[in-house]
Design a protein around this nucleic acid. Structure first.
Length: 504
RNA sequence: GCCCCCAUCGUCUAGAGGCCUAGGACGCCACCCUUUCAAGGUGGAGAUCACCGGUUCGAAUCCGGUUGGGGGCACCA
């Protein structure tokens, strides 16, 4: 990794992730967190986690926990913030939840009002809504009309008497604002086009644009790396930074993750909850690898990287400008690659939560080689090994007699084949009931009966597993054991006979 | 409506003036392997580098415009 770097104004590198616990961890939030993490680790900076829970109505401790747990699951750690080690908050700039930092915001808001960089606004939400609608009708930009900027003391007293509680509005200086984005280069906005925006609500709750600026300064954040959806908010933040006399951090706006229709990835159109991916059995390593490449590439043809390797290679300047569609097929492919890279022991361990508790660890370990290269997600194992824990009756009820019959063969022929298999395998002792032995016997039997091996194995597979698609047949039979295998073959024969009888 | 950002195969991307008759990967198709399904192997289709104009001996790469897409403009974050 590189030497620790300093920013232009000589601040040590400190980046932060600032999720809002108003929902479970979103894929986009995870990727932004990852990029911040990779940047911090690459340059040897400090990574700060701050919970943006000023929206008391929508924030919950459960969502906060979901976000933190899933970030940890991905392997993303932070140096300062909530739950750094052993569940404890760590860091000298805490507390790290905005709901616990209101004194600071109140103080800074007061400073702004006293210096006349901000002012009280008595407009009600209804009034503002009406103005907005009128502006829309007149095809004017929807921004605050500045009514409360020039109020007389009498006006103010009248509002107070009405019982109105004033919000605090920031007086946006009408000037052009330029900044050098880490990813996009020089970007210019004209703040004269902006309306004065509210920084503290009438009920005293401070708002996002304000607290983010106050906290980034308080926590000495040097690089603000966030989603592109914040690009047009940046001039507001810079105006606030200047009014408050803060130091300006570097900004970097990373491209958005997109729905298949190229709109910003959303719950309505895509699966966005990390927990859902986790529950389906995506590996955190695969998810990290996949997310990292959504908007960045090392510039080579390598594509498999661990978190550590990513941190070693990641350059913020190489991050792309254009958004990237979340390509689930590619995630699936990567997940399979990572699953196949696991040792059998590692995979058995990871598979445990997806398998019935009635399946003992020894069996899990033995079934792993049979299913390993058939798994896209860990969760796929559930269906693949179900035949082991299902009862013989369950298995028999899964298929219709005609599923036992390969193309070009009759029920009677299949019955004959099944009988032959039964007779052949029945001669095997419990100890000889091993895959190699089973395969050899079945092949011989097929040949003797004049069957193609594949056709001969089909009814056996269906009888034994209840499915036309299964892990390798003979390994499956070995795991099932002699008695259950034979019982299932007999059951299949009975089903075939019964079907035959009802036809006759 | 206004402001800003973006633009290479369906998708993720390589590409920073000649190495590009544009490379890789996913997906798709075919074949091989094969007890099903996978995995693996081989091959293939797939991008006039959004378009139009410049600059240059030479442009996917630089500049301008157009078009298209996206984001933002809350007493949400």
């Amino acid at each position: 990794m590189s030497e620790p770097q300093v920013t232009t104004d000589s601040r040590p590198v400190r980046v932060r992730m600032a999720p809002s616990p108003t929902g479970p961890l979103h894929i986009g939030t995870a990727r932004t967190s990852l990029y911040n993490y990779l940047f911090a680790r690459h340059v040897g900076g400090t990574y700060v986690m701050r919970i943006e829970d000023t929206d008391l109505a929508r924030s919950t401790p459960e969502y906060e926990l979901d976000i933190i747990e899933n970030l940890h699951w991905l392997g993303i750690t932070w140096d300062e913030g909530p739950q750094v080690a052993g569940g404890e908050d760590v860091g000298e700039y805490g507390p790290y939840r905005q709901s616990q930092r209101w004194d600071l915001y109140a103080r800074e808001a007061r400073r702004l009002v006293e210096s006349e960089a901000a002012y009280h606004c008595w407009c009600t939400p209804d009034e503002l809504e009406m103005v907005r609608r009128q502006q829309e009708r007149d095809h004017e930009p929807p921004r605050y009309n500045g009514r409360c900027l020039s109020l007389t003391d009498a006006d103010r007293a009248a509002f107070e008497a009405e019982g109105r509680k004033p919000a605090i509005r920031f007086k946006v200086p009408a000037e052009k604002v330029t900044f050098d984005d880490l990813i996009r280069g020089e970007v210019e906005f004209d703040n004269a086009l902006l309306g004065d925006f509210v920084i503290v609500r009438g009920d005293g709750v401070p708002l996002y644009h304000f607290v983010v600026v106050v906290d980034d300064e308080a926590m000495q954040v040097s690089h603000v790396i966030r989603g592109e959806d914040h690009l047009s908010n940046t001039p507001k933040h810079i105006a606030l930074i200047r009014a408050l006399g803060y130091g300006e951090p570097r900004f970097g706006h990373i491209p958005l993750i997109l729905n298949p229709d190229r709109s910003k990835m959303s719950k309505r159109k895509s699966q966005t909850d990390m927990t859902a991916f986790r529950e389906q059995g995506y590996l955190p390593e695969a998810m990290v690898n996949f997310l990292a490449f959504l908007g960045w590439s090392p510039g080579t043809e390598e594509e498999i990287f661990t978190l550590e390797e990513l941190a070693a290679r990641f350059e913020i300047e190489e991050v792309h400008k254009a958004g990237a569609i979340f390509d689930k097929d590619r995630l699936d492919y990567l997940n399979g690659v990572y699953i196949r890279h696991l040792t059998d022991e590692q995979l058995a361990l990871r598979l445990r939560p997806f398998l019935p508790s009635t399946l003992d660890d020894e069996s899990v370990l033995r079934v792993v080689p049979l299913i390993k290269e058939r798994l896209v997600r860990l969760g796929d194992a559930t269906e693949l090994v179900a035949f082991l824990t299902e009862t013989d009756d369950d298995v028999a009820s899964r298929y219709e007699p005609d599923m036992l019959v390969p193309k070009g063969r009759s029920s009677a022929e299949v019955a004959g084949a099944l009988e032959l298999a039964l007779k052949t395998l029945g001669r095997l002792s419990h100890d000889d009931f091993a895959a190699d032995e089973l395969e050899a016997r079945c092949r011989n039997a097929a040949e003797d009966a004049g069957w193609k091996p594949g056709d001969f194995f089909l009814p056996i597979r269906v009888a034994v597993t209840g499915r036309t698609v299964s892990p390798p047949l003979f390994g499956s039979m070995e795991l099932l054991g002699r008695d259950r295998t034979l019982a299932r073959l007999e059951a299949a024969l009975r089903k075939l006979g019964a079907a035959e009888a009802s036809h006759a």
